[in-house]
């Protein structure tokens, strides 16, 4: 009985804290909003701005000073790595977009048994770290891989491509597909079928309908998911590391310079360049698709 009374009193006289925490009070007072923002600002500063500044400063502390940036753009090995990483990421992005546009549209437009299981399976790579993806590529196309075993049995020669550019490409594609396919499916759901019917009534062939109606409709989703795909591929490390590939992707070079050669200024400069390129890519996409349209959160691989 006494508890009841207490509760009632508690309700009728809200504490000072609860009045601060109601959305109305917070919205009414910029001061309170600022106070509430402090934890977020602290985290941004501690785990983002400070390390970033430190990395940027490390470049200047090296023997080449700020010239390190120039060095990495003129040194053949670093430049080659940068170009290879860009080419690989761009290639994987294009391939993922083409595949996912077709598959995503098909999955949205058709209902069949096992459809939701298939969609679930296609998004499975999201839950794997890059190392596991690399491991799977080895199981598929490595020296002991499925493809090698089959070709050995059939032709007496093992087909092995896990450790060269093809293996890396497959690994990257594997973890890129879920990011793109989910975005494409979200865009495809919103396509207005009547637009296609209108185009067809005006005499447009299937191919023209794809070019004039479907692709423009999917474009925002393709651009934003393509950007995420590209950024993820630029930064992917685990897969390349596991495959111990002969392709030096930029994250691998950074790792080698930092841990094995203790070449901290170069590793730092490469990190900054990698970050800038990826950031520029995302920023370009933001301006393409219009400010305010949020991009999906980037996941690591």
């Amino acid at each position: 009985m006494s508890m009841d009374l207490d509760l009632k009193e508690g309700r009728s006289r809200p504490s000072l804290l609860s009045s601060f925490l109601t959305p109305r009070a917070a919205a009414a007072s910029p001061a309170i909003l600022t106070v509430l923002l402090i934890p977020g600002l602290v985290i941004v500063a501690a785990f983002f701005l400070i390390p970033l500044a430190r990395v940027a400063v490390e470049v200047g502390n090296g023997p080449e000073g700020w010239g390190t940036y120039l060095l990495i753009l003129t040194n053949a090995r670093y430049l080659e790595s940068l170009i290879q990483t860009l080419a690989m990421s761009a290639g994987v992005t294009m391939m993922a977009l083409v595949l996912c546009a077709i598959v995503g549209l098909f999955l949205v437009r058709n209902r069949f048994a096992g459809r939701s299981i298939l969609i679930g399976t296609l998004t499975l790579p999201l839950s794997f770290p890059g190392t596991v993806v690399g491991f799977m590529v080895i199981m598929l196309a490595g020296r002991q891989g499925v493809i090698g075993g089959l070709t050995d049995a059939a032709f007496g020669a093992k087909l092995v491509f896990a450790y060269d550019i093809a293996g890396l490409f497959i690994g990257y594609l594997y973890f890129s597909i879920p990011r793109v396919i989910l975005a494409v499916m979200a865009s495809a759901e919103k396509l207005d079928l009547q637009l296609e019917e209108a185009a067809r009534s005006l005499g447009a062939s299937r191919f023209r309908v794809i070019c004039d109606v479907i692709l423009p409709g999917l474009m925002p989703g393709l651009i934003s998911s393509g950007a995420i795909c590209f950024a993820t591929a630029m930064g992917a490390f685990g897969t390349a590391f596991t495959l111990a590939t002969d392709i030096d992707v930029l994250p691998m070079v950074i790792y080698t310079e930092f841990t094995r050669n203790a070449n901290i200024p170069v590793a730092a400069a490469l990190s900054i360049v990698l970050g800038l390129i990826t950031w520029a890519c995302l920023a370009a996409v933001r301006s393409f698709t219009g400010e305010g349209k949020s991009l999906p959160v980037r996941g690591g691989a």
């Binding site: 009547q194 019917e197 009534s201 005499g203």
Partner: peptide
């Protein structure tokens, strides 16, 4: 099929091509 019949269609939802201007929409056919 509809492409071969030369029909004009007007829909409740208008179904105008959002990536084209008014003139481009009218010119499409």
């Amino acid at each position: 099929s509809i492409e071969q019949r030369r029909v004009g269609m007007v829909f409740q939802s208008y179904a105008l091509f959002p990536n084209m201007t008014v003139a481009e929409n009218v010119a499409y056919g």
